[in-house]
Each structure stands twice: as structure tokens, then as C-alpha cells.
Amino acid sequence: MSNPKICIMTLLCMPCQLAKNKSAVDQRECTICDCLCMPREYFTRQQIRSKYGFEQATLMDCIVTGPCLPCAVCQDAREIEDRGSMVR
């Protein structure tokens, strides 16, 4: 809850936050198609790990993006924002 903007966006419109995360990692603008096609958080999370040089944790990411999806989406959005990769 240290970043209310991300938390509120995730709670009110998770598909939009998922799309925003994916487009930011891809370093491109977020479009309506991104929101409608709702990217899979697992793959976005794996891409974040590769991009920022984090250790790969395939099984853990699979587990986290299942029952803890809102938390994973918020965590990824904060990581992207902290590293300055958000496309505005």
C-alpha cells in the first residue's frame, strides 16, 4: 500500500494495469488492444526478471501469479516504475 495509485488501479481495473505493465516492459505505448487481450502476468513477470537481471524463478512465478495475482501485478508495476521504465 506504499503506492496507492498502483494499488487502486490494480483493484479497480486489473486488466488495465496488466496491459500497462506489459507495454512498459516492451517499451511501447499501451493501447486498447492491450487491455482487451489482457496479457498473462506470468510471462510479463518472466520478462521483467530477464530485463532487469533477476534470478529466474519459474515455479515461484507460476505459484505467485495464480492465487496472488493482484499482489504480483502491483509488485511488477512498482518494479517497473522504480526503474523508470514506465511509458507514459
Score class of each variant (00 low, 15 high):
M1V: 10
S2K: 11
S2Q: 13
N3E: 06
N3M: 05
N3S: 05
P4F: 06
P4M: 10
K5V: 11
C7H: 13
M9V: 06
M9L: 13
L12Y: 07
L12T: 08
L12G: 05
C13H: 12
M14L: 13
P15N: 02
P15Q: 02
P15A: 00
C16W: 04
Q17E: 07
L18S: 01
A19V: 01
A19R: 01
A19M: 02
N21I: 00
N21T: 04
K22P: 01
A24N: 01
D26H: 11
D26M: 10
Q27H: 10
R28V: 02
R28D: 03
R28T: 02
I32P: 01
I32C: 07
C35L: 10
L36G: 07
L36R: 09
C37Q: 12
M38S: 12
P39N: 05
R40H: 13
F43K: 09
F43M: 09
T44D: 00
T44Y: 03
R45Q: 04
R45C: 01
R45W: 01
R45V: 03
Q47R: 08
Q47M: 07
I48F: 00
I48E: 00
I48K: 00
R49C: 09
R49G: 06
R49A: 14
R49Q: 15
S50T: 06
Y52M: 05
F54P: 03
F54Q: 13
Q56H: 14
L59M: 11
M60V: 14
D61V: 04
C62N: 12
I63M: 08
I63G: 06
V64S: 05
V64H: 04
V64C: 11
T65S: 02
G66P: 04
G66Q: 15
P67E: 08
C68K: 12
C68W: 14
C68G: 08
P70C: 09
P70A: 10
C71F: 15
C71Q: 14
Q75M: 12
Q75T: 09
D76R: 03
D76K: 00
D76G: 04
E79H: 08
E79C: 11
E79D: 15
D82R: 08
R83C: 09
R83Y: 10
R83Q: 10
S85R: 07
S85P: 04
S85E: 10
S85Y: 07
S85M: 11
V87R: 10
